[in-house]
Nucleic acid binder design. Structure first.
Length: 258
DNA sequence: ATGGTAGCGCTGCTA
């Protein structure tokens, strides 16, 4: 079973590249983030043609998450478990069961700059995610929470830790918030299979960061141990960050034994 | 180098 995650940065603009990549990589499940589409505009038909069912949680202009699956799509839930019906929340969280695995597609708030109100909101969001997972799931069941965490878990996940000191995505509180997910029982599947440094999933569009190798590994696939132990292969597809109109993120693939 | 680019949507925001 191949599970993938990709922050597509506008599915409207990226649809041709996503279609091309699905045909090439053939994931069984693809979690997407930053679709930037209202649900009424989601191109479900295009994915159906390629053999994928789709669920999506969008809000238009910003955010938006989705899950594609060709191994079933059941028990779909959007948002947090403690969300009130009248609470206005951004479209950043979606769950579904695909081929016996509980899958989450998450788009963690960016945080903008350390100490800003957006940064504080990011930490609150991550703590709420931890509570949601803790109250809804069991570390002994097959669960994978994929997406753009906007956190590089360790210095090995950043191009130059010394230049990033004090910056967002690498601060200790953000890393502790991701660490709390690992403490509950999730495993960073990519890092387990790929211990080498210098592998990133996001590069700023500006200043030629991609070609200069200035990236961060902020797209993660965190799985419970019973599932993580079945992981056999992990790849971040840098080729999908090249060429015409790429997303600023590359897709990541994890393969699991049955 | 306190810059730079992309997307949304039409002015300046978000990333």
């Amino acid at each position: 079973m191949r599970i993938a995650t990709w922050n597509v940065n506008s599915l409207k603009i990226r649809l041709p590249r996503v279609e091309e990549w699905l045909a090439y990589a053939e994931p069984d499940v693809l979690c997407m983030q930053e679709t930037k589409l209202a649900d009424s505009a989601f191109p479900a038909m295009a994915f159906q043609t390629l053999g994928y069912e789709a669920v999506y949680c969008g809000q238009g202009q910003w955010n938006g998450v989705a899950i594609l699956s060709r191994v079933g799509l059941k028990d779909v839930v959007a948002g947090f478990s403690d969300q009130a019906d009248d609470e206005v929340v951004e479209a950043r969280l979606l769950w579904a069961t695909c081929g016996g695995v509980r899958v989450g597609s998450v788009y963690v708030p960016n945080g903008r700059s350390v100490g800003s109100e957006h940064y504080e909101a990011k930490l609150v969001w991550l703590a709420r995610l931890r509570r949601h997972i803790e109250s809804s799931y069991d570390p002994n069941e097959p669960l994978i929470v994929c997406g753009d965490y906007n956190v590089a878990p360790t210095d090995d996940d950043a191009w130059d830790p010394s230049k990033l000191h004090g910056a967002t995505h690498v601060s200790p509180p953000e890393r502790e918030a991701v660490g709390a997910l690992l403490d509950w029982g999730l495993v960073d599947t990519f890092r387990t299979l790929r211990p080498e440094t210098g592998i990133y999933s996001w590069w700023d569009y500006r200043a030629g960061d991609f070609h200069e190798g200035r990236g961060l590994r902020i797209d993660l696939a965190l799985a419970t141990k019973p599932l993580a132990e079945r992981a056999t292969f992990a790849l971040i597809d840098r080729n999908a960050r090249k060429g015409k109109q790429p997303s600023d993120h590359a897709p990541m693939v994890i393969d699991f034994d049955p």
